[in-house]
Design a protein around this nucleic acid. Structure first.
Lengths: 246, 246
DNA sequence: TGACATAGTGTCTATAGACCACTAACATAG
DNA sequence: CTATGTTAGTGGTCTATAGACACTATGTCA
């Protein structure tokens, strides 16, 4: 595939400047919670263009293997993380004449949420450098390849926005979790404290969780463990989380 | 451009089955309110594939003219309707091996809202047949080209959803309108009646409209005319429109 | 056995939409 | 020149749900 070619070979193979159709790819913002932070998976580019810069994982559609766009996304997710499909959502497409040095290109951005301990990093045979990086740090200090900074921003905004009125963060936790852990996850993504009672009421009333019967013990009162009901994973609340008023 | 070619010429020109990159296009669901209905703009396909079937307007990216994807969308909107940019939003991309008989293809779907009387239909030099059609009718009875039925569904859902918590329908009205006209527009899109007092409070409290000073007279009490404030066009409400409870 | 820490609850307030009946202001018919 | 109809616009109550915050419960560990 394209990835193994040098730029010159690539240009020759695709004869890009003769085309009047754009190159189309898929890029992913794969989020997880690690060390109390929201982190995103980055790959160091091994080829031209933007060689050596960190980038969102992604690549070209494989017309043989992939039947649909989401097949491509699932394949990429699997290649980079070794897991599949906890949560995958198409976010937005970015296309312009100058976002890629190779010419007019379009990329379809996907957002994925995965549980930290599912991860077997860099199961990719191409042995690129792969790493988790704090989203905050990436957005403030780093210079990503192509327009990946903008793509990450949009995916991050989408995540923050959806967390307001859905139970999405459940996908960032292992199958069993306590309500406090879930609340912490919401707080990390939203970046604001969430009121305990309101939070618990919302989640419980939404009727998407069930008690597993187990308890999480520590050096204090044990907490009930919950898992998501088989049916509903994401569920819409009637209002968004409003956070403290004063 | 591609449009003037026969399938055979097209295949030859693009040598499609040699590529391992997909064809990428833009398709649009252009909505308006006409005759008390939500209607969508359709174009009759003059070429293979799906020749003779109605389709959403759209086409390939023009790598010379368009700098970005939204340029392509704006251009298509202008070509078909003679107007530009009252409201344009990217919705979702659809890509698969079999959505287009020509091979693997990706299309980026856009949603546009325009005011009915802005419209100068079929300003397109290619003199295709262009028409407005009731969305309800299209979704129930018609067979659109490619996967355009699915694309329309997604765009329609997005519209209905956004209307719940934004002032989006303002873009379907002329610059001056009465609150009752705006309410009617919401009701047409939502398909349910909306309570007058709550609606007016919501809209007025959102502080996105200003009185123009003019009045709309008829054979009854005249109504104040409003226009959108220069700053805010779309604005988010804190809750969605709930409609009648019983 | 008591300090502590975290889990989990009772209950009040504030907000904003639903509901519905009311008043206001025009055109037009008689 | 009034009566009537029709639509514009409002007042005021009801209700659902989120925020606030203090309270109780239940474990560990020194």
């Amino acid at each position: 595939m394209a990835k193994e070619l040098t730029e010159k070979q690539f240009l020759k193979r695709y004869d890009i400047h003769e085309f009047d159709i754009p190159l189309t790819s898929v890029d992913m913002a794969i989020f997880t919670i690690r060390g109390g932070e929201l982190q995103v998976l980055l790959v160091k580019r091994a080829q031209h263009p933007s060689k050596g810069l960190w980038a969102l994982p992604g690549g070209f559609i494989d017309l043989k293997k992939d039947r649909t766009l989401s097949d491509t996304a699932h394949r990429k997710l699997l290649e980079k993380t070794g897991v599949d499909t906890p949560y995958l959502e198409q976010v937005e497409s970015f296309g312009s004449a100058d976002r890629d040095a190779r010419g007019w290109s379009v990329t379809v951005a996907y957002l994925a949420l995965i549980t930290c301990d599912d991860i077997v990093l860099a199961a990719d045979e191409s042995s690129e450098e792969v790493t988790w990086m704090s989203v905050e740090k990436v957005e403030q200090e780093m210079d990503l390849a192509f327009d990946h900074q903008a793509i990450l921003d949009v995916c991050h905004d989408r995540l923050k926005n959806k967390v307001q009125y859905t139970s999405l963060p459940i996908n960032l936790l292992p199958t069993e979790f306590t309500l406090t852990e879930l609340q912490k996850t919401f707080e990390i993504i939203l970046g604001i404290p969430v009121e305990k009672k309101s939070f618990r009421r919302r989640i419980l009333d939404a009727d998407i969780l069930e008690e597993t019967g187990g308890m999480k013990t520590g050096s204090n009162r044990p907490a009930k463990l919950y898992s998501t009901k088989p049916e509903g994973v994401k569920h819409f609340f009637s209002r968004s989380i409003e956070g403290p008023r004063r």
